[in-house]
Write a protein that binds this DNA or RNA. Sequence first.
DNA 1: TTGCAAAAGTGACCGCGGTCAATAACGAAC
DNA 2: GTTCGTTATTGACCGCGGTCACTTTTGCAA
Lengths: 197, 197
Amino acid sequence: MTRAPQKRRLETRAKLLSVAAAIVQEQGYSGLRVEDVVARAGVAKGTLFSHFKDKDGLLAVLIGEEVTRLLDGMESAGAPSDIPGLTARLAPHLDYVAQDRVIFDLLLRYSGTTAAEPDEVVTASFTRQVALLARWLQYMQAAGSIRQSPPPQLLAEGIQAFLNHVLGVWFCMEHNNEAPPARTLEPYLKAWLQPPA
Amino acid sequence: MTRAPQKRRLETRAKLLSVAAAIVQEQGYSGLRVEDVVARAGVAKGTLFSHFKDKDGLLAVLIGEEVTRLLDGMESAGAPSDIPGLTARLAPHLDYVAQDRVIFDLLLRYSGTTAAEPDEVVTASFTRQVALLARWLQYMQAAGSIRQSPPPQLLAEGIQAFLNHVLGVWFCMEHNNEAPPARTLEPYLKAWLQPPA
DNA sequence: TTGCAAAAGTGACCGCGGTCAATAACGAAC
DNA sequence: GTTCGTTATTGACCGCGGTCACTTTTGCAA
């Protein structure tokens, strides 16, 4: 039986998170260094690692919060009526992840659909994303705007695969005057979802 | 104008690669440490980094060679006639990558289809894989065993996306008595390739 | 043979994530 | 208040990838 954490601990955790968020704001995710965080938070290095498994654990909380916010946005936008609409719904997520390789790597590492740790924010986001997509796809199937045969769950997971594919390619080139990821996504979605003519 | 490398340099490079390969054989990819490599090769640390951009650069050569070997196998097996056949052709690749997360991460980082550096072994492998798949799919389209509408190139890239998806999920659970990745792949391929009934 | 510039190799050094035995702060019981 | 077991924090230390000013080796040319 684990005991409730003391007040001091909660404060320390909050301090660490807010400092980390500030640093990310200033320097981006890949600019975040543990030593900076603890210095600005006024705690020792070991403290950070008693609150978070490792640097990724800290990042996972920050990123998880952001992804949750994005999902809230998607959810409140409601089910799209066609494939371009779906692409548009996914664009903010794509743009967010595309901004920094660190986000992509972390999400990929935790992308275990229906994974073991339900308290992990990131993992929860993934299940939520897939569930939301599956629901949308079900509506769209009912409306006849996408093909009927594969179950919505499978279609949803496929979309996640394409999201990652597009992002993977995105990070492989120095995207100078490159098309935004959402543009690249659409052909895959069309081929994956469009009903046979 | 860069000059031809001296004999000594080629020997050193070969020595580093053979030592690294031996260590991978013994300890696996994730067990490879730079300090071990240089110690056993009898050179200084800096030498390694004058031959390879970083640790990943060294690994990329080793992994690239292996992937090339796998592609040779795929190529000599010839085009499959149906979707289970295709799955079977892809299984060795999947099994190889599934053996160690390091392989997956590295391949993903270099998976820039048609990327800038054609001399990079890994990048070359990717273009080759996509080209091979596209060729196969073209045959299969001609034979009518898969759907006709999307161009083979797009279908091939989609398959790569599913390969990575399946592997990503694979690494997210401790695969105790888990189904091998190839099993997980098949439903996606069916939904992606099967002609409408 | 010897002189010399470019190529190859060296290893002390650094950055940074992560550990752990030791220590301090907390809060419940008396 | 004092005591005492638990919880929280500390910071010196480590591992390991990567750097760079310097030394050694090489092979061409005088």
